[in-house]
């Protein structure tokens, strides 16, 4: 073991004591896509004690361009990402206990899972799940590390309950129609850069070097050669429903979350987003068209052919996914397009 981790034990920020701490910790990672692949690999190579991975998707050809744990064989076998990730991570480091959970990260699942977790890594692709992570983090006092990217643009922020502002302080509400990798594209260096920031923060937290944890909000654009470090001293919002004095943890309430229902007698799932409001169907049609999808529409709705499924999106954000009865799959398709 010493030989294996010798190069990071040599790093003064970790040392022998730090390595023992890393070994004793349990990390919960939500998502095993691009950010999850990279963060999971860094932590597994670093010798974390336990890593629990939650993901609802399976490996697809369009993932291979940036999701570093997966191979062509995983695509051919249509392996769930959590299972494919576990397979590769065990080959990398058989000493790490990997718990792979194939499913949707709902509020109740997360509340069950966090009991003995030390930190949470955000590797999701939508704001709703991030807001749930944020509430769980505040309620159970577990730090989490936000990371996100699209195109050549990415960002990261470390959230420590009782110390830093939280994601709900910054956003106040779930952004509608955020850019996703499915609508804005993504290059893999951007992913690597977010992973570098998230995993460095994770290591600091695992060795309990709290003074080293970054207090600024980092954003960057690798194609435009920009890097910004935003001071967050004034970002805490006293009326925040997630971390303020009169907190209610709104995103732990299933009532506030995206609703999925199988429509009676039909091979169709209905999706109702938690925040409803006008979305720009015209803009969405343009984006999806340039992605190569067949799109038809009128002022009230948009119909998109997506392989064996068809999604109909209404201008209040509601959608029907025809061709499936699988609630999780339907929600995944929806959030990949609408964030």
């Amino acid at each position: 073991m010493d030989e294996r981790y010798s190069r990071q034990i040599l790093f003064p920020g970790i040392g022998k004591e730090g390595q023992d701490k890393i070994r004793s910790k349990h990390v919960l990672m939500i998502g095993a896509g691009a950010l999850g692949s990279g963060n999971g690999e860094v932590l597994t190579r670093a010798g974390v004690g336990r890593l629990t991975i939650v993901d609802r998707d399976y490996v697809e050809a369009s993932n291979l361009q940036r999701q570093q744990l997966y191979t062509e064989e995983d695509v051919a076998e249509k392996l769930p990402k959590a299972a494919a990730a576990k397979k590769r991570l065990k080959a990398i480091n058989s000493d790490v206990e990997i718990n792979a959970i194939i499913g949707d990260a709902t509020p109740s699942m997360l509340e069950d899972l966090v009991k003995d977790v030390d930190i949470i890594i955000d590797a999701t692709d939508n704001f709703e799940t991030r807001m749930t992570i944020n509430d769980v983090s505040q309620k159970y006092k577990i730090p989490w590390i936000y990371g996100a990217c699209v195109g050549s643009y990415g960002m990261s922020f470390s959230i420590i309950p009782g110390k830093t502002p939280c994601l709900n302080c910054l956003l106040r509400t779930i952004p509608m129609q955020g850019l996703t990798c499915d609508t804005g594209g993504i290059i893999s260096p951007t992913v690597q850069m977010v992973i570098a920031h998230q995993s460095a923060e994770a290591l600091k937290m695992l060795v309990e070097d709290w003074d080293a944890v970054r207090t600024s909000f980092v954003s960057f654009d690798l194609w435009r050669n920009q890097y910004t470090s935003l001071k967050m001293g004034k970002a805490k919002f006293s009326g925040c429903l997630s971390c303020g004095e009169e907190r209610t943890y709104p995103y732990l309430d299933q009532e506030n979350m995206t609703k999925t229902t199988v429509l009676c007698g039909r091979d169709t799932v209905q999706i109702r987003p938690s925040v409803q409001g006008a979305i720009s169907l015209e803009k969405l049609a343009g984006q999806l068209g340039s992605l190569g999808y067949t799109v038809k529409g009128n002022p009230y709705l948009l119909s998109v052919e997506m392989g064996s499924e068809r999604m109909v999106i209404f201008n209040d954000g509601r959608a029907l996914i025809h061709g499936t009865k699988d609630l999780t799959h339907a929600k995944s398709i929806y959030q990949r397009i609408l964030g």
Partner: peptide, 30 residues
């Protein structure tokens, strides 16, 4: 998110002459 001179700013902050303002949209991809 809004930054004034590389510091996070709330919506009610009043802008001063010479301030550099930046708009940083959080994104959801991952």
């Amino acid at each position: 998110m809004t930054a004034v001179n590389e510091e996070f700013a709330q919506d009610d902050e009043v802008i001063q002459d010479g301030d550099e303002i930046a708009f940083i949209p959080p994104v959801s991809g991952g």
